[in-house]
Design a protein around this nucleic acid. Structure first.
Length: 969
DNA sequence: GTCACCTTCCC
DNA sequence: TGGGAAGGTGA
């Protein structure tokens, strides 16, 4: 204790320079006496001095910043609150900072009545039950901290509170002393006035707002006596005004202005507001923060705009203000007034010298119209250095919460200062949420090799605000990907099409005609002629009713092989075509789809929608979806979605594998082999132009072969499972038929976890096939928890980060992580239990692999002992190295009476069958687009749940995983 | 007459 | 109290 005490003492404290934030030991009567003398204060008669230094007083009697303890110890009428810190932070703070707020254990008291600067605020100490008074906030001391902490006194206008904010953001609030600071008779004496003069610092005013505020109609303010007051939702102040470098009294005037600074018809209402004008007097000593919370911005009805402005003008005339009102004949038509944002004009008028400082706040936007300005998704975030190719516009989708500005630029920039705006003529804004633009050329360097990553953002011209940037790739114009040859091909095709298009009226017609041309050109390469529709018929159909056909196609996105509805069933023959020509065809189709978007604007739903490209190989086809994913279909059924990134990675990986086998000695120049998402489906051109390494090439077609093989194998497995199920159900339950089932394949998900709050989790790989009743499979990412599995929408699977909130549970000591998916515009949050869930291993800062899905909460059968499980399972082992082999075994359930059918267990190797559990979780927060899965994967009334057993070398386990299969009836 | 968006109301 | 819904208004 003595040592701690020593820490607190500031023996060499230079008292004359004592100011806020400097250390003073309240337990040291010498220091206190000197300080008070300095301030011209005296210890009141009849009052004792502060305790003598020899008294053992600290630290047990000091108040700490632990909010709970302190609040418990408060006397009536006095509160001490600690803000800007959640519980964890307070705990941390408690360790770091103790405030010597109280000098005494034994009620050594300084009566405030006779001491000008002391405040009559007393605390009782919860731990000792004693009561004490303390001096003004000036005498707050911080211990164990450097004496240079910057404390700032402030006054909360609305609540009549004042207090001190410390450098770490924490603060102490003292209520009911507004008059002490704000009054002429404030506690700061002449002495400090002199100090400020000595400093000679320039007066400054800083105005801060949160940037968002819900503008209210007066009709929302409660017009029947009880006026409603609104605060910002998170309790943040409406505005805070920080005045520095001045001591004395001052007046603050504040009202709403538009972006340019002219008075805005919206007005301020609340305390100290008259006719839209806020005005109040304060006294400041060098440094003061005025916080104003309970003021609202009122949005008068359009008819009252002029009235509102007139009132404001009249109100201003009653005050000495430097504002010059200009009758500029502004038009107050509804549409000419920016109702979405205002600024606050804050004028601080110093009474001493009649000088004013005027500051405008940053724009305050209407919260009701959204609270961020963020990019949700960028489709095709890449372009050649020469700029976007014709028909290859980039598409930006903003978040649901975005308050979309009126005037937006698309900017590309890098961190070296290069910046370019997209030509406004190429920028199209749809529904205030989608921006389509053509990437401008990369003017910094037209001769790049490989690629350059720059930043892409939306820029609000009015406010200068920018969205957080997203990556954008410029790649070389050189022909390493066949881009140029494709482009040439495309150009020639376009020329051809236009030559033949004099009678063509719509984009759809043009493209269908074009396709006829393409197909004619390619026709001699077609082999399979029993396709349903000839290209000529197809073109005619399109001519008759192009719009409807397209509309129907777009609406029926769930029925995936929709290219056939456009008459493109022949695409299945595409494997016989020259890749370049396929690529050109696909590009044309994409263009076609883009153009038809215009016809389908009524389709609304962010016309990201298109059915651009399909590659087929035998029974497998890959179609590019509107959400940027590639949908894999097998035998006409949807198998799942993969991201373009993944597809490209796969191509590249396969290439590298093959290449490294072929040329062991040559180093791989992966740069020249990179496949970019934008091109992924078009990427079928052998890399021959840069063939010095003679790289073997894996293109889409080869990948399709691999995929087909995989899917075939998978189908065999399903069949195996079906047969097994059928057999065993009948054996065990007689009358039970398996009408539906869920079987899944799953690869690992990798998260990297960091401790503390808002843990970023990087979702590196998530793949989860879920099969529905028809045997269709869907690819989703999965997060496992102790109460089930949660499926993230396909696009979320590619999210770079998901946010995890950490909470510890007092009940069972377990740790819960609430996972939020920021890429989804939802509030979906997930919880899983670290302690109780044997699904993952979390090491601070290390990746964790979530490989095992926890038992479904309704699973009543759950073998918990792997050894026991294995004993009961006569394993049928297949090739364990094969990723597509499922072995299974039936297990006699020990508690089979819980179900009308005995549970059945399967064992798979290297794979992770899963079940879905949509029905068990509330997705009401999710937009329907997030719930695609719900429509497609409905759990059957009877189902099998298959959990995996993973080989040890695949996984990191805390505990042994639990394999289980269950049939629910 | 239509449609976007303004305004009010209410949970 | 934020957000949705319904009714109103005006371009």
């Amino acid at each position: 204790m003595a040592e701690k005490r020593k820490e607190m003492l500031v023996g060499e404290c230079d008292l004359p320079s004592l100011e806020l934030g400097k250390l003073i030991d309240l337990a040291d009567p010498n220091q206190v006496n000197k300080f008070m003398n300095l301030k011209g204060l005296s210890i009141p008669r009849g009052c004792q001095l502060f305790m003598s230094p020899s008294e053992a007083t600290l630290p047990s009697d000091r108040f700490t910043r632990s909010a709970g303890g302190l609040l418990r110890g408060l006397n009536k009428g006095t509160k001490d609150k600690h803000k800007n810190g959640n519980e964890d932070k307070q705990t941390v703070s408690k360790m770091q900072t103790d405030y010597a707020i109280l000098p005494s254990t034994k009620s050594t008291t300084v009566s405030s009545a006779d001491v000008d600067m002391a405040m009559s605020v007393s605390f009782s100490n919860a731990s000792t039950g004693t009561e004490s008074s303390f001096l003004s906030p000036e005498l707050f001391c911080q211990t164990k901290r450097e004496p240079d902490i910057n404390t700032i006194p402030w006054v909360d206008h609305d609540k009549g509170q004042s207090g001190i904010t410390f450098a770490d953001g924490n603060e102490i609030v003292i209520e009911d002393d507004l008059e002490v600071i704000g009054d002429e008779s404030n506690m700061f004496g002449e002495g400090l006035q002199q100090q400020s003069d000595e400093k000679g610092s320039e007066p400054k005013v800083e105005v801060k707002t949160e940037g968002y505020h819900r503008f209210r109609y007066i009709s929302e303010m409660g017009n029947r006596g009880n006026k409603r007051t609104f605060e910002n939702h998170d309790g943040k102040e409406f505005v805070s005004i920080h005045v520095t470098g001045y001591s004395g009294s001052m007046k603050v005037l504040m009202f709403c202005v538009d972006i340019e600074g002219k008075p805005h018809p919206f007005y301020l209402e609340g305390e100290h507001c008259v006719d839209g004008l806020f005005s109040d007097n304060y006294t400041v000593n060098q440094d003061l923060i005025i916080r104003i919370k309970q003021i609202n911005i009122i949005c008068p009805t359009h008819k009252k705009y002029k009235e509102s402005l007139k009132k404001l003008r009249d109100a201003l005339e009653k005050h000495a203000t430097c504002h010059k009102w200009q009758d500029d004949g502004r038009d107050f038509q509804l549409k000419t007034v920016d109702k979405s944002k205002v600024r606050l004009r804050v004028e601080v008028r110093y009474e001493n010298d009649q000088q004013s400082i005027v500051k405008w706040s940053d724009p305050i936007q209407d919260r009701k119209q959204g609270i961020d300005f963020k990019i949700h998704t960028v489709r095709d975030p890449s372009a050649p250095v020469s700029g976007s190719l014709e028909g290859n516009s980039v598409l930006i989708v903003t978040t649901n919460e975005t308050n979309f500005p009126k005037n937006v630029d698309v900017v590309l920039f890098d961190n070296s200062g290069w910046e370019i705006k997209a030509d406004l003529a190429t920028v199209e804004i749809i529904k205030k949420c989608v921006v389509i633009f053509k990437a401008p050329p990369y003017t910094k360097d037209q001769d790049i090799k490989g690629s350059v990553t720059v930043s892409l953002a939306l820029h609000d011209r009015d406010t200068g605000k920018r969205t957080p940037p997203v990556n954008f790739i410029y790649y070389a114009d050189s022909d390493i990907y066949g881009v140029q040859s494709k482009k040439r091909k495309l150009d020639s095709l376009q020329d051809l099409s236009y030559q033949n298009s004099s009678e063509i009226r719509t984009a759809g017609q043009a493209n269908n005609r074009l396709l006829q041309v393409v197909k004619k050109k390619l026709g001699n390469k077609r082999r399979n002629t029993d396709a349903t529709t000839s290209s000529a018929e197809m073109g005619e159909n399109a001519n008759i009713d192009t719009g409807d056909t397209i509309k129907g196609t777009l609406q029926d996105e769930a029925e995936v092989p929709n290219m056939s509805s456009l008459g493109f069933s022949q695409v299945q023959e595409a494997q016989e075509l020259v890749p370049d020509e396929i690529a050109a065809l696909l590009l044309q189709m994409e263009q076609f789809d883009r153009k038809t978007e215009a016809h389908n604007s009524e389709q609304d739903l962010a016309p990201v929608t298109k059915q651009p490209s399909t590659l087929s190989k035998g029974k497998v086809s890959v179609t590019s979806l509107m959400n940027g994913m590639l949908r894999v279909s097998y035998k006409g059924n949807v198998v799942g979605d993969v991201s373009q990134e993944r597809w490209c990675q796969m191509l590249q990986k396969k290439r590298q594998e093959k290449y490294s086998k072929a040329t062991v000695s040559t180093s791989l120049t992966t740069e020249t082999q990179r496949v970019y998402p934008q091109q992924c489906l078009h990427e079928s051109t052998p890399i021959t132009s840069n063939s010095q390494n003679q790289n073997p090439v894996i293109g889409n077609q080869q990948s399709m072969e691999i995929l087909a093989a995989m899917l075939e194998k998978q189908e065999q497995i399903q069949q195996l499972v079906r047969e097994f199920m059928s057999k065993n159900h009948q054996q065990q339950s007689g009358d039970i038929k398996h009408e539906s089932y869920d079987v899944g394949l799953r690869t690992g998900q990798q998260f990297s976890v960091m401790p503390q709050h808002h843990i970023p989790i990087t979702l590196e790989q998530t793949e989860d096939y879920v099969f529905d009743n028809s045997g269709n499979a869907f690819l989703y990412s999965v997060v496992a928890s102790d109460d089930g599995k949660y499926y993230l929408q396909p696009s979320s699977a590619d999210a770079q980060q998901i946010v995890v909130d950490y909470q510890s549970s007092p009940e069972d000591g377990s740790q819960h992580y609430i996972i939020q998916d920021p890429s989804a515009s939802t509030n979906m949050s997930l919880t899983f239990n670290q302690a109780a869930t044997p699904t993952h291993q979390m090491i601070e800062g290390q990746p964790i692999i979530v490989q095992h899905i926890q038992q479904h909460p309704t699973d009543e059968y759950s073998p918990t002992d792997i050894a026991q499980f294995k004993q009961t399972v006569p394993w049928i082992q297949d090739d364990p190295s094969s990723s597509s082999v499922l072995t299974w075994q039936h297990v006699q359930a020990s508690n089979s009476d819980m179900h009308s059918a005995s549970p059945v267990c399967f064992q798979s190797t290297n794979q992770m069958p899963v079940t879905n559990s949509f029905q068990d979780h509330t997705y009401s927060d999710l937009p329907s687009s997030d719930l695609e899965c719900d429509n497609k994967v409905q759990p059957g009334a009877k189902r099998i749940i298959i959990n995996e057993d993973l080989t040890d070398n695949d996984l990191e386990y805390d505990t042994v995983p639990v394999p289980a299969v269950e049939v629910e009836v």
